[in-house]
Each structure stands twice: as C-alpha cells, then as structure tokens.
Design a protein around this nucleic acid. Structure first.
Length: 641
RNA sequence: GCCCCCUUAGCUCAGCGGUAGAGCAACUGAUUUGUAAUCAGUAGGUCGGCGGUUCAAAUCCGUCAGGGGGCUCCA
C-alpha cells in the first residue's frame, strides 16, 4: 500500500492506495467529485492525470475549472473531441496540432481544399456534444516509433512530428473511436465538458512558416456548463462594443478609406483628441529637459544606405524620386536626429542631449495585418533620441523609467509588464560596451524598483532594450514604450563629442518612445475607456443643452463663457425635446452636460448632468460652475497653479 | 503576402434569380419642449468595381479592391 495525501479546495484527505492504482479510483472511493468537478491533479509542478497510476508520488493537489491547469487539460481534451467531430464529417482531413490556448483551443487541419465554413459550426458543435456526453475516456498508450509512423503513413505533418521525437517516448491517446498522437495530459473522461462553441476559421501556416503549406485553423472554446459559455460570449460582445474602430466611427474621430488603406483620416473631433494629447506630452517633455525638433519626411536614399535601413528595412519602405535622385519616405526618425546632432561640435558638457520629435513615419505593412489604428501604414511616433556618454546611461534610463511610469499612470494603465532584452547572437560593438550597457539598464530598473523579466538574446543587434507592455480591454497585450540603446548609429554617422580630455569620443544614442505612436495609443485608450475619455481629453468637454428655442440666447452666452475659459463646447440648437437631446449627448459620451431652462436663465445658473458621476446637480451659478470645471479638467500631473 | 468570411441609402441592417426595402440621420412643416428617441411629409441607392452565366442577376460564377478573423502559445 502507498500512503497518499490529497488536497481539494482547501481540504485535505489522507488515504492509502494499491501500488499502480489509478488516481481516479482512489478519488471515487473517497466519493470526491471526480469526473465532474475534479479535472486533473498536480504533483509539485507537474500535472498528474487522473487516469495515471500512482507510483512513488504521494502528495496530490486536485484541480478544478478555477485553476489554469484545469482549464488547460479541459481544453486540450476538448481539442481531441473537436477533431473527432470534424473527422466524422471530413474523414480525409489530416490532423496536425491542436493545443489549448488562452480562452479555448484550436486544431490546425489540412482539409486539402474542402474544409468547413461557418455554416458547418452548428453541426460540428452538435456532434461534439454527442461525443462528449457519452462520455469518452482518454486512454494513453505508449507506442513504438514504427507503429506511430505506420499509423500516420498518409499524414506528413504527424510524421514530421514523430521524426522530431527521436529518442523520446511516443504516446497515442485514444478516446471513443479517435486516436491522436499526443503528449497529454488529458481529462479522465469527457464528462465535464458540457458546452462548446466553434468560434472561427483562420488560415495558419504549418509551423508558422509562410513557406510551408497553409492549414485551416478551427478555433473553439468549451466550458463545464452552458451558463459559463454564455458568460464568455457576453464578454466577447462587451469587448466588441469597446472596439476602437467602432468607437472611432460612433464618436466621429477618424475613418479609413480605400483611397488610402492603412492611412487614417482624422476628423475634427479626432484632431482635438490628438492635439490635446500631443500638447500635454510636449509640455511634459519640455519640463523634463527635452528639446523638440522636426526632421523631413522625405530624405535621400543615400542617407538610408548609410543608416543601414536600406539594407535591413527596405521591404517596409516607400521610395520616390526627386530631380532624378532616389529618395525614401522615412520609416524612422533617428537618422534625421543624428543630422541635427551634427550641426554643432558637441562637448561633454552638452550631454545628455535630449531631442524629441513627434515624427510622422510611413511603413509598408502587409495588407493583411492592417487593423484600425492598431496597425497602420503611417503614424506619428512620440520619438526621442538621447545622446549621452556611456557613464550617463544609468541615470538617464532611471529618470526615463520614472517618466514613462508617470505618463502611463496619467491614463490609468495599471497592468503593465517590463521586458529587458539582452545581447543577441549577432551583435555589433564591443563585449565590454554591451555588458556595461546591460548592467546600466538592469541597475536603472533596480534603482527605481520596477519588476521586469529578462528576454535573453532578444535585444537588437545594435544594443539592448527595455520594452513596456500594457493590456487593453480585450486583454490583448500592446507594446507601447520602448527604450533602445544604440552603439551603431553614432558610429555610422560619425557622431562625436569632445570629452574633458579634449579628445573626440563617440556618444551613445538612446532611442525611446513612451506612447509608441499617438495613433495606436488613441486606439488603446478608446478600448481602455470604452470611449468615455477623461474630461481633459474629451473632444467635447461640455455639451450645452437649451431646453427650448427661447433659451438659445442664454445658451450662446454660456457657451461663450466656456470658450473664454478654453473649454471645448458644443451647443445643441436642434428643435428637439430635452430627453432626446440628452440621449444624443450621452451617446456621444460627452463627460458633462449643462442644461439650461427658464429657471437657470433667470438666476444665471446651469444644471449639470455628469457622465462620470452619473448624477445631476441643479441650479449651480454659472461662474462657480466654470471654476469647478477648471479644476476638474486639469490634465494629470499638473496642479492648479 | 497567404487562408476563410463580409461589402445593399450618411449610419445600422432586411431582401438572396423576376425589374430596390426598413429604422435612424438629412431636408421641410407642425410642436416650444425639464433629464436617454414628438408627430407628419420630402428627398436619398451605377445593391464595392469589372467581366461572365441566364429570357431575366443585389441574388449564381470568376476577378480586382476594401473591410473582418487569423497566420511558431509546437504531438
């Protein structure tokens, strides 16, 4: 007998088992909810399947739906059932891989040109539930290489996988009439799987390589109850409502047109937002020791040859000709910045020199990847280049980290991750310079006390970098800020400064962006706020609603007072009822609505309807209301004085 | 770029082989309104472009363009 200890939702059981007895039989004996709530088990950090025999292990943590491991196993098994359901309709389809993912699972399948369409989803789901409810038991069987290869003699993908398992054990998992090459782990049986939804179809290259055959990826998700599936579908709907492309249209901020795919058209309200954002950041940077520059959008091809972009980035660049000379549209701002640097002989006393540029860059992105403001072909970077000595790197990075943190906090981004990428295999510059730079970055991060992850070997060939990633409302990760050290460009462009020794030295260049691009940042911000922008950023801050035509004169007066105080105001002069005007203003997501009736006009006051507080205040004196608004509309990080 | 899907009035969408429809918006008029849609009328479309099948195409087929979902979370 083996002594074992089980932990399930905080409670502990101690019992004994026969050697080689399966874990699930022990659980059944204890009348624990195995095959329903208990999905899998863990010993230390390794998953131990319920159907696996207990050997020397003794300490089991039982896991349900609430654990990541439980979901992982649940969806992994679901992928097998999905494949089985699909094979019942497309028996000749060749399976490849079918892993669990963040919110479900997929299976990549080669249908050889005759795959399913979305109309087939219901019948696949029906078949899936039929199979799952039987239920199907997942039985692991070790097979020889020869047997595995023979079984998959018509499936080049599985064959490729088997060849890669040289020297390792090979397993088949059998469930119902379905067999799949799989390393597991799986559920004991399909009983817990009560709801499924086939979500979408997508093309996916075998092994992510566009040179290899394209497979059909079937995305799906499954749950232990129909109610949980419903909840998930509602979440997806809510995320869709927050889609910045939709909000951009509804709020009349920007649009896209076939006359310029991937190039945003900014409407008046979008410009108000974009300009407010830029003015705020500009003021912040100027107060942090930066100077602003602006460099040309079109520069000679020779410059891009010198910078290395022509060699390494040509695919993404647009070219043109001026007076028969070849030119290129800038995909990055850095070469322009170096030209400004070179306009003077620089002394070590001038460093660090911080030059920022809200630079409009153009990049040729593949047509298939364009996505609203998230992925465009022209965008404005909040770019800056800091020229400094190697000794100054650490201090410079530390203050930069604080600045970036300050900026993100202003927009309420709480969830963020920092990645430090270090020297790749292919690199330029001396080893000592690299280690000095990496140490500088790392100790800067430690100085300001920010937690980070290291991505070894992920740095650019010209220097190490720090990336900032925030999560949007769809829980997608977006890299916003980046700090990149560059040893290469200063050399390529022959940049120097005169040191205290009177000799010329090569400065280090720090490329950095905080928001990344204004365009994409606005997209992220819209999804983050569901379009309910903070008062200081809102394109229309106050909507003035006179109750009837008789109040139009007073409305004009109020609006003038607001404009005088530098607010962005709109008056609703339409001949509609109050309820209608309020409805429209609410749909425009205006933060503040001022309502003017006869009572207000008489007392020179206004009534406030506040989107943010979801409450109303009646009869506030006009001058007082404007003073309050002035306080409330201050951009973050600024005090009233 | 590649795979699947979509494209009908300014917007949201219905129609899916027999000669274009709704709601909202716009315009005109009535109404003068107190916290999320007042009523009536008018106007508005080469059904994304091009080509084909058919007596007949928004509807079926092809092609191009634009848009959406994806394209190394590895048995």
């Amino acid at each position: 007998m083996v002594k074992i200890r089980l932990k399930w939702r905080g409670e502990v059981w101690e019992t004994e088992a026969e050697p080689q007895e399966c874990l699930h039989t022990v659980l059944e004996r204890l009348q624990l909810p195995v095959g329903t709530e208990i999905l899998t088990a863990k010993v230390g950090k390794t998953i131990h399947e319920l159907s696996a025999p207990i050997d020397s292990h003794s300490n089991f943590e039982l896991l349900g739906w609430e654990s990541p491991e439980g979901k992982y196993v649940f969806w992994h098994s679901s992928a097998h059932i999905l494949a089985e359901a699909i094979l019942s309709f497309w028996p000749k389809a060749k399976l490849t891989i079918g892993p669990p993912i963040e919110n479900g699972f997929y299976y990549d399948i080669d249908f050889e040109g005759n795959g399913p369409t979305p109309e087939d989803f219901p019948k696949i789901e029906k078949k899936f539930l039929e199979l799952a409810s039987q239920p199907e038991y997942f039985v692991r069987r070790r097979v020889s290489r020869e047997e595995a290869l023979a079984y998959y003699k018509d499936n080049p993908y599985k064959t490729e996988l088997i060849y890669e398992l040289e020297g390792e054990e090979i397993f088949f998992y059998e469930s119902g009439n379905f067999v799949d090459l799989c390393r597991g782990p799986h559920l004991w049986h399909s009983g817990p799987i009560k709801a499924v939804k086939v979500l979408s179809l997508a093309g996916a290259y075998w092994r992510g390589d566009s040179q290899k055959p394209q497979l059909t990826r079937v995305y799906a998700t499954s749950f232990p109850s129909p109610a949980l599936l419903e909840e998930y579908l509602h979440q997806i709907e809510e995320a869709a409502r927050r889609d910045h492309r939709l909000l951009g249209k509804q709020l009349d901020l920007f649009s896209f047109h076939e006359e310029g795919p991937g190039f945003p058209f900014w409407h008046p309200k979008g410009m108000r937002l974009l300009n407010t954002l830029q003015e705020w950041l500009r003021a912040k940077l100027l107060s942090h020791g930066y100077e602003e520059i602006k460099t040309p959008i079109i520069l000679t091809q020779r410059l891009w040859e010198q910078s290395g972009h022509y060699e390494n980035y040509r695919e993404n660049m647009y070219f043109t000709q001026i007076d028969e000379e070849p030119y290129a549209v800038k995909p990055m701002n850095c070469p322009g910045s170096t030209i400004v640097y070179r306009t003077h002989i620089r002394s070590y006393r001038d460093l660090p020199l911080r030059l920022f540029e809200f630079g409009l860059v153009h990049r040729h992105e593949l047509s298939g990847v364009l996505t609203g403001l998230f992925r465009v072909r022209a965008f404005t970077q909040d770019d800056a280049h800091i020229f400094c000595t190697p000794e100054q790197i650490q201090d410079e990075i530390a203050s930069l980290l604080n600045l970036i943190e300050e900026v993100y906090a202003a927009f309420g981004f709480k969830e963020r991750e920092i990645f430090l990428s270090t020297r790749p295999e292919k690199y330029i510059g001396s080893l000592s310079l690299w280690s000095q730079a990496e140490e500088a970055l790392e100790s800067a991060l430690k100085t300001v006390g920010m937690s980070y992850q290291v991505n070894p070997g992920e740095g650019a060939f010209y220097g190490p970098k720090i990336d900032f990633v925030v999560r949007d409302s769809l829980r997608r990760r977006w890299q916003l800020g980046t700090i990149q050290l560059d040893f290469s460009m200063p050399q390529r462009f022959g940049l120097t400064y005169i040191g205290s020794d009177g000799q010329p030295h090569t400065p280090v260049m720090i490329h950095r962006a905080i928001l990344g691009s204004f365009e994409r940042f606005i997209g992220v911000l819209l999804e983050h706020t569901a379009g309910e922008l903070p008062l200081w950023l809102a394109p229309i801050q106050v909507k003035v609603i006179p109750i009837s035509e008789k109040l139009f004169d007073y409305a004009r007066e109020v609006a003038a007072a607001l404009r005088e105080a530098a607010f962005r105001v709109e008056v609703d002069y339409t001949n509609e009822k109050l309820a209608k005007k309020i409805r429209l203003a609410e749909q425009e997501k205006v933060p503040i609505i001022w309502i003017l009736g006869a009572r207000e006009a008489e007392t020179r006051s206004i009534s406030i309807r506040d989107r943010r507080l979801r409450q109303q205040v009646q009869g506030v004196p006009l001058s007082e209301a404007i003073q309050t608004l002035k306080r409330e509309a201050l951009p973050p990080g600024l005090s009233e004085n």
